[in-house]
Amino acid sequence: MKGRPRTGLAALAPFLWLGVFFLFPFLLVAKLSLSDTALAMPPYAPRVDWSAGWAGVRAFFAALDFETYARLTRDSLYIASYLSSLMFAAVATGILLVIGYPIAYGMSRFAASTRQALLMAVILPFWTSFLIRVYAWIAVLKPEGLLNTFLSQFGLPELNLLNTDTAVYIGLVYAYLPFMVLPLYAVLEKQDQSLLEAAADLGCTRTQAFWRVTFPLSLPGVGAGALLCFIPMVGEFVIPDLLGGSGTLMLGKTIWTEFFANRDWPAASAVAIAMLATLVIPIVLYQRQQTKMIEAGR
């Protein structure tokens, strides 16, 4: 056979995947966000009247509007929950960096065989259901839970952490730690040790070598880890729902309320679409970071 190998089908696969599992649902949600609520099955209008043919489709599009989006800007609740979600995600990402970096750094300094075991230990929690792990935190943090039992053993005052923002941060940091550690570990482990010798040779103490060489070189991992955690944390629902208080304001909960309590599918969709739009910026940043990492890795 002459010419280029036939990779047509294989090359289509990712697009097919994205089309079926991202683009199609996205368009459905986008369409929904332009609809209005209605007491019907399903609870929104308009719906395409296929029997009316082309006119039905036209009528359908004519009935779509941006009213729901306008409402999002009018009610401070949505802005507040956006800001609150971004805040939760940003602070948790910061904490994750502070905790995850030393872990990843420490891991990368061990002998190869020990590193494998440590890597396993980081991945191990994934073998248990996410929900069970979050529930376990309820058992730890509740008033009569493990934490307070422990504290009272030492005569320390009890902490009421469950259903507070602190509990949400604990849950977020706990659940996302591997997503921070793994990319950091990947860059730190690859780092050429002779660079540190070179830095020492050129007059750096260990600390100086870390800040002048190790850290700047690990920035792609920092970026990847931060975005990998930040993006899903903005939309996190389970952790604030289970560990947070009723006052914990996050987008995931807002969407839940719109969808279930208000039966307002268009509003829930609009909030979701707006969230996606907000997240496009960090996602694009993440993409660029990845490209950079690949280039630097040449």
Partner: peptide
């Protein structure tokens, strides 16, 4: 007060 030129050069890639 000695400096070394490494076999791998060990240039700082960043």
């Amino acid at each position: 007060p000695v400096n070394m030129m490494f076999q791998s050069y060990a240039l700082f890639p960043h």
